[in-house]
């Protein structure tokens, strides 16, 4: 009984901490955007914002996907308590990544955005990933998990598609030096393969 209370106290304390940590990248970018830090965001602040926000969306997505294999390897089952928050951060950064593109980069030129989505495969992929994240974010509440039951797990397998679309979107966007997106791809591959179990 006592252990239970101290544990729930632990989660009560660490969750806000992780929430703050997750907001830190955004805060740093905002400080740069308003030129409060030394160099601001450099010569092309919109490009910098776009790329950094996209990277953070992918990083949180990979962290979310790392929870299950980590639990399996270490036995640290308590990690599951943080998974929803990490997943929602991935969604959060993906949404502001998109808003930066739509508002700052394209100036809300709907025709240009539509043309991009239809004509540029890497943007098609990015939009696909983001759209598929929406139902996952909407069904992330405790009530929805309960209501959907077994179907919740089925629905949330979409996250694999989202992660592949996200990393591929990064890979196709890069001009020539594909080292960094390949590194993300490698991590994703490890995380996906670690889930694979031969059927008996």
């Amino acid at each position: 009984m006592q252990i239970d209370t101290s544990l729930s106290n632990f989660y009560r304390l660490t969750k806000p901490l992780i929430l703050l940590l997750g907001l830190l990248p955004l805060l740093i970018l905002m400080l740069g955007a308003f030129n409060i830090t030394d160099h601001g965001l450099g010569a092309n602040p919109i490009e910098k914002l776009l790329h950094e926000l996209g990277r953070w969306a992918l990083k949180f997505l990979l962290l979310t996907l790392a929870i299950t294999p980590l639990r399996r390897w270490t036995g640290w089952n308590w990690l599951i308590r943080y998974r929803r928050m990490l997943g929602l951060f991935a969604f959060f950064y993906a949404v502001i990544h998109f808003l930066t593109y739509a508002v700052l980069d394209q100036g809300l030129d709907i025709a240009a955005i539509a043309e991009d989505i239809v004509k540029r495969p890497y943007i098609t992929l990015g939009m696909t990933g983001l759209s598929l994240l929406i139902p996952l974010a909407l069904t992330s509440t405790r009530g929805m998990v309960r209501r959907l039951g077994r179907n919740w797990r089925k629905l949330h397998r979409l996250v694999y598609v989202v992660a592949i679309a996200g990393v591929w979107h990064f890979y196709w966007q890069v001009k020539l030096d594909t080292l960094e997106p390949l590194f993300y791809g490698l991590i994703l591959a490890v995380l996906l393969l670690s889930r694979w179990r031969p059927r008996r």
Partner: peptide, 9 residues
């Protein structure tokens, strides 16, 4: 092939 050249930043 991957982006528009109609406008520039």
């Amino acid at each position: 092939p991957r982006w528009s050249q109609a406008r520039e930043r």
